[in-house]
Design a protein around this nucleic acid. Structure first.
Lengths: 253, 253
DNA sequence: AACAACGTTCCATAATACGGAACAAAAAAT
DNA sequence: ATTTTTTGTTCCGTATTATGGAACGTTGTT
């Protein structure tokens, strides 16, 4: 469990720099990371020599280097899912005009691996690669519902049930009930459980074995994603799209 | 100039892992990196805790984590160029049906930041984020041609002139001549100077100040990219596209 | 059943990373 | 124009931290 200090610090610097796409100077990094300038200077020189960081010629500010781009373009583990899902999710987005997120599970969290934005003026903030807990998101519930009992137990054991809104699930028992419902229904709701004023509906993506390997959701403000719209329109369309994507991936259910 | 050893090693591990998108085990990493298993294990545990690496549940192999994806999605420094250029480069690609690369300069090298692939069966291998020297590529010559004298001197001072093919430029004097020609013509050739059997033609992308901030090239095997085709068709089309992209970016020349 | 390959943990050693201090250079304030 | 502040860089003695061999446990193969 003990971590390599210098490495941990350097990765923290990368994380900070990603919040400053136009660059950040050493002094600011020192404040944000609570480290001495000399330490940061030393770490940066290694990061630069490895092209993980680059220094703007004019401003002399430091920013993420192209090696990050290089690495990101070979993470093909999920590229099959993304390319299979994208056209169908784009069609769904055009139809319903709400933001869509594609997710997988990683270390018992939900990770967003793709996103299709609506052209509504009120949009959700989210970022590809960012994370959310499983118990308070529709996509997370879907992924939980597809796990083997042992994987489920493991994923669920570490949950810290935080009340993010009034409706957030607050206990293992509640969650268990909810997951049972999700299994029965074949879709999952996040009924204002993760973020105030936001409702989502999610569905599973299966591989040719029938295993749930990803999920996607339609999200938006409650005044657009009403429960009436969910029941009258979205459940059907989301399910159809989920089925079509799974079919692309070889699932014949 | 002295580097932080543990950090340098960890970044090397990331580089290696990016060659194994389906994962790699510790023992193999140990071979490739010439490090003891215990060292790698320790570095990996930090990388994992920071989500820079993830471990496949089934195979237990290690692969790049989603934090890399997260970082890469906020490197907006060039996103303006990319989004301005993409539609026009796609149109050019459809027209001529050859691979197109978009590049910027970084630490006196050419970095590929976007790529549009032709649907030819014989394609070039290349990868976004990868690098090439400036003196032997069309895109590099263009970028050199746009530099201030001091930037040019700096970029050129560190060149190690390696004969990559029979036609590769071999000296500073030759390069100087070539750059002068590029400036006059407004486009640059890589006439089988970087890779055997490959010819490229490149043109500059300018910002609203008129500064050259990027370049792109059309590349392909010499039997398709003949000098006749270059002169009769490609010079004109590449220049037109370059002008249109620069216009998008505010250049009124 | 024996063996091989792999991942993980432990620990004494010394190599490595650390950060304060001092310096230089640039920017801001007077 | 002069002072003051802020910023980046280099140095170096200290001790904290990273290191890798060895030993152990686990899994899979012959």
């Amino acid at each position: 469990m003990s971590n390599v200090q210098s490495l941990e610090r350097a990765l923290t610097l990368l994380n900070i720099m990603s919040d400053y796409p136009d660059g950040i100077q050493i002094s600011r990094l020192a404040e944000q990371a609570n480290l001495s300038k000399s330490t940061i200077h030393r770490l940066l020189s290694t990061l630069i020599s490895m092209k993980y960081v680059t220094q703007d010629k004019k401003t002399e500010k430091y920013m993420l280097g192209y090696q990050i781009l290089f690495l990101s373009r070979n993470m093909t583990a999920d590229s099959g899912i993304i390319s299979a899902a994208r056209p169908l999710l784009e069609r769904l987005c055009e139809d319903i005009n709400e933001t869509i997120h594609l997710c997988v599970e990683d270390s018992s969290e939900v990770v967003y691996i793709d996103k299709i934005e609506s052209n509504q003026t009120i949009r959700m903030y989210s970022r590809i690669g960012s994370r959310n807990p499983m118990y308070c998101t529709g996509v997370g519930k879907i992924l939980l519902s597809g796990m083997t009992p042992s994987d489920y137990d493991h994923a669920v054991s570490s949950i810290d049930f935080v009340k993010r809104t009034a409706k957030t699930i607050g206990s293992l028992e509640e969650l268990e009930e909810e997951i049972a419902l999700v299994k029965k229904q074949g879709y999952a709701l996040d009924n204002i459980e993760n973020e105030e004023g936001i409702r989502c509906i999610a569905a599973p993506i299966r591989d040719f074995h029938g295993n749930i390997i990803a999920s996607f959701s339609v999200s938006g403000p409650v005044h657009r994603i009403t429960m009436e719209r969910v029941n009258d329109e979205l459940v059907r369309k989301v399910r159809e799209t989920a089925k079509a994507i799974s079919h692309e991936l070889g699932f014949r259910g």
